[in-house]
Computed example of a mutant assay.
Amino acid sequence: QAAELESEGKIEKAMLLYEDAVDSAERDPLYHALLARAYMKIGRFTDARIQAERAAELSAPGDRTDVMMLIARVYGAMGSWDKAQDTLQEVLEQKPKCGEAHFEMAKAAEGLCNYTRMVQALDEVARLGSRGSSPEYKAALEERQRRISELSNQTNSENASVETYYALGILYKETGRWADAVEAFNRAFDSQDMGADAHFWLGVDAEASGRRDQAVDMYKRAVALCPNHAGALRNLERSLLLKTVEEFPTDRDAWYTLGLAYSSFMNWTEARIAFGKTIEIEPDFAEAHFRLGRTLEMLGETDEAAAAYARTVELFPNHVEAAEALARAENGG
């Protein structure tokens, strides 16, 4: 019944039936996995992780691959890309030819800005032929390759336009050829007509290579060309804050704002570090304890989250959100 409701898009009703199934057969890993999937669909990621891990505990050693994949996807949805990557590595150690695991590994690597690893994973997916086998996908890929060849021929001309290099860079990026994409964007770089996206991707490449000053410059240029460029704005804020905390490591506000920035795009692991640094600098900063509690809760560390909420209430007894979160944590969610 739950599966039928889920197929009809009635996720919350399906979730209630899955919960009943788990209560009726607590040691059946399948029911825990199905409940985890339902929780994930409605954004209850911590609950999804708990149920998926319970399914893994109950599964036979040789039957855990699908559950471990689910756990990795939950971590990805929570923005914990490092944990997703570690989980997927476990899967690949058991099943090195699992194309889905390589595909999820590519997503985790992208989340960690490890574009070399991302391309390696996508290359492995292509080699295994586990994705993109539909006629529509193959036709789209062939069209991209045809367009790349066409634009590459145009760049051999002395009068190749900025638009040609930029379009070629975008196509390279979409097909995972990052080094070629950066080279194409660089060829367009001398012109003021280069688009915001090109500056953004040059910034991403510079940041991944440790050239933060150059990355900041690229992000600034992208924002100047497109003030609402979400990716450039986000990366610029993070890069400037990282630069600030490197220059002024005891700047409480810089660390706290960096934590908020990481939280805004669900990088909970880095947010935890930033809020922790904030508290090291000022142990009685109540709001930092509260934000740390939220971060720990998203990472599934409920006991530590409860302690952070308790400290918040101790420092600021009228903090309503912290009191509610503490009660929720103490009651098991």
Rank of each mutant, 00 (worst) to 15 (best):
W201H: 03
Y309C: 00
R212M: 06
D20K: 09
T269S: 06
G276M: 13
A56Y: 04
D253V: 05
V245T: 02
R146N: 09
A222Q: 07
V216C: 04
E330S: 06
Q192F: 15
R291A: 02
M68T: 13
L58I: 08
L112S: 07
P61S: 09
D20Y: 09
D217Q: 09
L70H: 06
P135K: 10
E26Q: 12
D251W: 01
V119W: 04
P317V: 07
M118S: 05
Q94V: 14
R144D: 04
S80M: 10
N114E: 10
K220M: 06
T175Y: 05
T175G: 03
A322K: 05
S191W: 11
T164F: 01
R212K: 10
E330P: 00
M118N: 03
K95F: 13
S80T: 13
L315D: 03
G231Y: 12
A181K: 02
E110A: 09
A206L: 09
A36L: 12
L17W: 02
D20C: 06
A196F: 10
R131G: 04
P227I: 15
Y115F: 11
F248I: 03
P317N: 14
V313Q: 01
H102M: 09
A55Q: 04
V119G: 01
E280L: 01
A84R: 04
V67W: 05
A126H: 08
L242P: 00
R131A: 12
A106G: 06
T269E: 11
A121C: 14
A323T: 13
E104R: 08
G332M: 00
F316M: 08
F316T: 12
K10F: 10
D20H: 10
G79K: 10
L151M: 05
A196K: 12
Y75V: 11
M118L: 02
G62K: 09
Q120C: 04
P317I: 15
D303R: 11
E237R: 12
E4V: 14
D28K: 13
Y165M: 10
A140H: 07
A55P: 01
A109H: 08
E301W: 07
E142V: 13
L258K: 00
Y165A: 05
L233K: 11
D66Q: 14
Y166T: 13
A310S: 15
M68G: 06
E183D: 10
A14P: 00
Y75F: 08
A72F: 10
L202A: 05
H319G: 10
